[in-house]
Simulated assay, not measured.
Amino acid sequence: MINSDVFNYVNILNKAADATWTRGKLLANNLANVSTPGYKRQDIEFQTYLADALKQGHGTLDQKVAGVNLQSIEPTIYKDNTSLSYRLDGNNVDVDTESANMGENVINNNAILESITHEFSRIRLALSNN
Rank of each mutant, 00 (worst) to 15 (best):
I2Y: 15
I2P: 13
I2K: 15
N3R: 10
D5H: 09
D5C: 02
V6E: 01
F7Y: 15
N8Y: 01
N8T: 04
N8A: 11
I12M: 12
L13P: 03
N14F: 15
A16V: 03
D18R: 11
T20R: 15
W21E: 10
T22L: 13
G24C: 02
G24N: 15
L27P: 12
L27T: 12
N30D: 10
N30Y: 09
N30S: 07
L31T: 05
N33P: 08
S35K: 15
T36L: 04
P37E: 08
G38D: 04
G38P: 00
R41V: 01
Q42N: 03
I44W: 07
I44C: 11
F46C: 09
Q47N: 14
Q47G: 11
Q47I: 09
D52Y: 00
Q56G: 08
G57Q: 05
G57S: 09
L61W: 07
D62A: 11
Q63W: 03
K64R: 15
A66Q: 14
A66G: 03
A66S: 14
G67M: 13
G67V: 01
V68D: 10
V68E: 08
N69F: 00
N69S: 13
L70V: 05
L70H: 07
Q71P: 00
S72R: 00
I73Y: 01
I73D: 09
E74D: 12
E74C: 01
P75A: 13
P75K: 03
Y78C: 05
Y78D: 02
K79L: 09
K79D: 10
N81D: 13
R87V: 06
L88S: 09
L88Q: 09
D89G: 05
D89K: 04
D89S: 05
N91W: 08
N92I: 07
N92C: 06
V95W: 00
E98A: 12
S99K: 07
N101G: 07
N101S: 14
M102A: 11
M102V: 15
G103W: 00
V106F: 05
I107S: 02
N108G: 06
N109D: 06
N109W: 12
N109C: 02
N110C: 01
A111M: 12
S115C: 06
S115P: 02
S115W: 00
F120G: 04
S121H: 11
R122T: 07
I123C: 08
I123M: 05
A126Q: 08
A126Y: 01
S128Y: 03
N130G: 14
